[in-house]
Design a binder for these strands. Structure first.
Lengths: 250, 250
DNA sequence: CTAATAGTGTCTGTAAGACACTATGAG
DNA sequence: CTCATAGTGTCTTACAGACACTATTAG
């Protein structure tokens, strides 16, 4: 019976090989219309010099707290900073295969984050070599982080379909055009401006009007756009489905 | 920089408080038209005598292997058995808040399983007190297992919408009516037989005909039903959405 | 026979996508 | 002026759900 071995092991942790628990975070943001991910460069072996997802050991805190603390450290943002609080963080998945870290058994609880535009992270914290990298260029990462990033990207693409979390990439006020740029960057496809506009406004609770408009038109002309903020919906109904992919069958 | 502390900790695990890693599994099945979950009774403190999700410590194996091994042990099915291989298992989420186990820091990687009808688990294994319990009656579980079960149920309900995994609750061959009963049990709602039938057949790759029919009609009459097996679709397109809930806004 | 179920036909409302069109404002 | 963008109108097609109906078989 499980309970028995649980009891024994609890008082004899040395009876099991040691396990370390870390959090690694896939933080995404939009820069220059392209999806970027926060990466750090490893200074020590293994994988010295390779890029990796930021992360670290879990202390006496919840997993979510550990993820947010790591995010603050790696971005150099102060824990009290408003920009940090606006980052959406959710648990992605846990990676714990033996051998994924050559030193010992390491369980990594991965978190996925959606961040509005943040400054370059060089300023503070202990992330001497952290930086935002376009996701297309984030390859050959340390450990199994290629897989973690791929899982995070797929989750992010799916989340935009049925939740309003696309707004987490933007400031408190935004235009429909900016929101469309988020979808285009995450999905990697252009979206029809007119249809997207009507669809977003037709989903109850997705966005609500602030009443204001941008102070001037777009860079290359056009009328001023109305401003919106995130609505109170937790889920989008109906959902904004990605342009049909036929690859659902294998 | 993270890499540095990672390096140090890796060679001094004693420098961190010990952490135990377990897998807990939420295995669901349909019995008598109702959704059931596999529970065990705890023989030792803490939570002695309370029901709990089956689970145990992770050994030198992948997390998925640990989950399948625990499932085999708790159900008393032999590892090579066909019924066991047909159980769909996927990672659900990791629970690791300090204090969730009063003895020490325990990270529990929860898995979610969809099982066809299995025999009562008393026969073998070390699960002396394991059994299938209707999910409505599974309350006040040990540790944070109420939350884990709730998360598993919500994931299961969502999975039936956009994946063909409802077929994992059935045998190799099944009727559309049996598949509808699965959806009704998991979603807790009656579904219109005619519309469900047409919809299932209209989704490419959801089910494929075997050409056969049941040997006799239903218990209370009716024609023989055609038999189907699971198709090759990994995702349902279009999805089978749950009857509209208005609670998506909060 | 009756009752229950399998499976089909048909209609209606909603939504997605294509496309056209007007209005606005930067350069 | 030119041109890009914001935002709206409209048409077609697809699908969800309601409902009606026929066919089949247990009891």
């Amino acid at each position: 019976m499980r309970a028995e071995s649980t009891f024994l092991a609890a008082y004899d942790p040395a009876g099991y090989p040691p396990v370390a628990v870390t959090v690694d975070i896939v933080v995404l943001t939009i820069r220059d219309g392209a999806l970027h991910v926060l990466l750090v460069e490893r200074a020590e072996h293994p994988y010295r010099g390779r890029s990796a997802l930021p992360g670290g050991f879990v202390r006496d805190e919840t997993l979510a707290e550990a993820a947010r603390r790591e995010l603050a450290e790696e971005t150099g943002l102060c824990p009290g900073e408003a920009a940090l609080a606006r980052v959406h963080l959710e648990q992605l998945r846990t990676y714990g295969d033996p051998g994924r870290d050559p030193r010992m058994r390491v369980m990594s609880v991965a978190y996925l984050g959606f961040a509005p535009s943040l400054p370059d992270p060089r300023a503070g914290g202990d992330a001497a070599t952290a930086g935002w990298v376009p996701v297309d260029e984030a390859r050959e990462l340390a450990f199994d982080h290629d897989t973690v990033l791929a899982d995070g990207l797929e989750r992010a693409r799916a989340k935009l379909e049925y939740t309003p979390l696309g707004t987490a990439f933007l400031g408190a006020e935004f235009t429909i055009g900016e929101l469309r740029a988020v979808y285009a960057a995450v999905w990697g496809e252009q979206l029809h401006a007119g249809n997207f506009h009507r669809k977003v406004l037709s989903v109850p609770g997705f966005v609500e009007s602030t009443g204001g408009t941008t102070s001037r038109g777009g860079e290359r002309g056009g009328p001023r756009a109305r401003l919106y903020r995130a609505g109170d919906a937790a889920l989008l109904h109906p959902a904004l489905l990605r342009p049909t992919r036929e690859e659902q069958v294998r």
